[in-house]
Design a protein around this nucleic acid. Structure first.
Length: 600
RNA sequence: GCGCUCGUAGCUCAAUUGGAUAGAGCGUCUGGCUACGGACCAGAAGGUUUGGGGUUCAAAUCCCUACGGGCGUACCA
């Protein structure tokens, strides 16, 4: 990890001064950025390591203050309570931060011992309908986290587990059989997943009609739930029979299932491609749903599970109550499959950690799953994580597939890109080709969407207001992209003018202005932000940082002319600073799978 | 009922996991271009962090309590 020279030396100094204290291995001093309302570049919080040093915060702060007063990199040092704020010489600031961009970017890499093989599962769509905004949040969180983890040095395997079987799949199939008249994606020009989804909607409408009729003709059933009455309806019985036929390998049903699934997969491929998602492997539930039964049998033999009087196999999970892991009729429940696929994924890839990106309504399910894996005795079961995220709500309330209040993924992409395209045209429509406009629109529109979804802490239930959420100004992806575009523009002009800015010939002492130093100090923290975000599995920390850096750049941009600087030496120094900032902003956005346009 | 979780500016969200005077964006109001690109910048207004107790050098953060949302509590997935 990168560090300021004087901070590293402070750590050494303190270790000598407090030699009797019990320092943890690899103990380091963390300097924070000085709050904006205080004078100084960095701040040392001596309250923090008072416990380790076994001294009073105030006395430690005195020693820290004295150390900095003697240090040649430090211009001023000031103690307030047990905080010590220091101002560094410009030379020291740049030498230890942006002077070598490559070193800075690489210092976010974890040590070899910290690098792990991590398997992350996300998306997990059903093949009965197209993806919606909820999936887009899941996809974005998953792909960006995968990218972030790999950015700091982990070996990341991205997995999708598609739910391609079950009663809900049969619903689309049955509706197609009855109302489809043999249409196909080719014959209609409709994207496959949307076509299949339209039959899912038709099915639910037909079911609802039957349920209403049933309740009218048999008033005694009026208060029963839809689920209870499902098998009382003709269409429900037909669906149930279709599922049985599927499980018995009925050729006609299987053929229809394969055909409709292939349409959906073709549609999903397009959606994933547009988002930039590439899975290492896609598991199909139709191939994995029987997994887990043998493990349950094995666990039963070993006394991990118990057979109840009614024949169901269960496990006592204490506070989480007793969980059935195999039905009394010997068939799987949801968690049986998950036990099986967890083991399957482990044996296929031997990951040291597994992550599931799944909505927070399943928190309890995963707690149980992890506990069961531990009780089964798998050593790696301590490194299973559920990245739970909150639902996406609309101003009108919850998204409900059946009620047609979902925001469709593909339509959302189009809308974002179209709006970005209009914004481009408005600005530069005359001077830029329409191909270039649409290229930029794609980058800006998709970037804005992903950025917005990542900006929220994943656990928050977020509100998506189509009117207000689609923005390109303020706290947005395009704001950060725009900073890059501005730097690109300056750099192009600098090249035309023949301005040289090789890092090792720069006189950094010239950059003593507040805007310049703030920019460099903010840049310094990039590797730490990356590692902390990866550690917490939280992309929003990186988002906030990139906004802060872009904002610092825009202030600098306003106050410190580069090409029109007072002299060429200053111009070169500022150009070198800009170049480094662009490098970090680009690296950060790319780490979140957001692309950066050359110009916009 | 029980469990988990959340409640921060008019709105949408932050707050380095217990740190300094709680910050951004949007919206509102006021300013800034003979432009290294205005998808920008500067400023103002806006808060008893849902209410009430407690713990300590320090609480939005931890504990207790009341109120109010969300989710879960299946031999559904």
């Amino acid at each position: 990890m990168n560090s300021f020279k004087c901070i590293t030396e402070l750590a050494t100094f303190l270790q000598k001064e407090f030699s009797q204290a019990a320092f943890p291995e690899n103990w380091t001093v963390n300097a924070d950025k000085c709050p904006p309302n205080m004078t100084g570049d960095l701040t040392i919080n001596c309250f923090r390591f008072a416990k380790i040093l076994r001294g009073s915060p105030d006395k430690i702060a005195d020693k820290v203050l004295a150390f900095f007063k003697r240090h040649s990199d430090v211009v001023t040092a000031e103690k307030i309570k047990a905080f010590v704020n220091i101002t560094l010489t410009p030379g020291a600031v740049y030498r230890d931060s942006v002077a070598c961009l490559d070193t800075l970017l690489k210092s976010s890499q974890l040590q070899d011992t910290g690098q792990k093989r991590i398997l992350i599962e996300y998306s997990a769509p059903n093949t009965n309908k197209p993806q919606h905004l909820g999936h887009v949040r899941n996809n974005t969180l998953g792909m960006s986290l995968a990218s972030l983890l790999s950015r700091v040095g982990h070996d990341v395997i991205q997995i999708n587990l598609v739910n391609d079987r079950g009663i809900h799949i049969c619903k689309s199939m049955l509706a197609y059989e009855r109302f489809g008249k043999g249409i196909t994606p080719e014959s209609t020009g409709i994207k496959g997943d949307h076509l299949v989804g339209s039959f899912y909607v038709k099915y639910n409408a037909a079911l609802k009609r039957e349920l209403n009729d049933l309740r009218e003709t048999k008033p005694e059933l009026h208060d029963e739930s839809d689920d209870k009455l499902f098998l009382e309806t003709e269409i429900g019985q037909a669906t149930h029979k279709m599922l049985q036929d599927w499980e018995n390998g009925d050729e006609k049903v299987i053929a229809l299932w394969k055909e409709m699934n292939s349409w959906v997969f073709a549609g999903f491929d397009q959606t994933y491609k547009r988002m930039g998602i590439k899975f290492n492997h896609t598991y199909l539930e139709s191939e994995t749903y029987l997994l887990g039964k043998d493990i349950v049998a094995d666990g039963l033999a070993r006394g991990v599970f118990k057979k109840r009087e009614d024949g169901a196999i269960t496990i006592d999970l204490g506070k989480m109550s007793t969980k059935v892991v195999l039905r009394s009729d010997g068939t799987s429940v949801y968690i049986t499959q998950d036990i099986g696929t967890t083991l399957k994924k482990y044996s296929d890839y031997k990951p040291e950690e597994q992550i599931w990106v799944v909505g927070d309504e399943q928190i309890l399910h995963f707690k149980m799953l992890f506990e069961i894996m531990k009780k089964l005795g798998f050593a790696w079961a301590n490194d299973l994580h559920h990245l739970a995220y909150g639902m996406v709500n609309l101003p009108s309330g919850k998204m409900k597939s059946r009620e047609g209040t979902v925001v469709d993924a593909d339509e959302l992409f189009d809308e974002m890109v179209n709006l970005a395209g209009e914004a481009c045209k408005e600005r530069y429509g005359d001077s830029v080709s329409s191909e270039e406009i649409s290229r930029r629109a794609e980058t800006i529109g998709m970037g804005a969407l992903k950025f917005m979804l990542l900006k929220f802490n994943s656990k928050t239930t977020m509100l998506f207001d189509p009117q207000a959420s689609v923005r390109f100004e303020g706290d947005t992806g395009p704001y950060v992209q725009y900073a890059c575009a501005r730097i690109n523009s300056i750099e192009r002009k600098a090249a035309e003018q023949g301005l040289k800015f090789d890092a090792d010939t720069i006189n950094w002492d010239l950059l003593s202005g507040n805007e310049e130093k703030t920019l460099a100090i903010t840049a310094f923290f990039y590797p730490q932000i990356l590692q902390a975000a990866a550690e917490k599995m939280d992309c929003s920390a990186l988002i906030d940082y990139l906004l802060e850096l872009a904002k610092a750049f825009n202030r600098f941009y306003r106050e410190c002319p580069v090409l029109a600087a007072d002299n060429e030496e200053l111009a070169s120094a500022r150009m070198a600073l800009c170049h480094a900032i662009r490098g970090i902003l680009t690296d950060g956005l790319n780490t979140l799978t957001i692309e950066v346009p050359e110009a916009m």
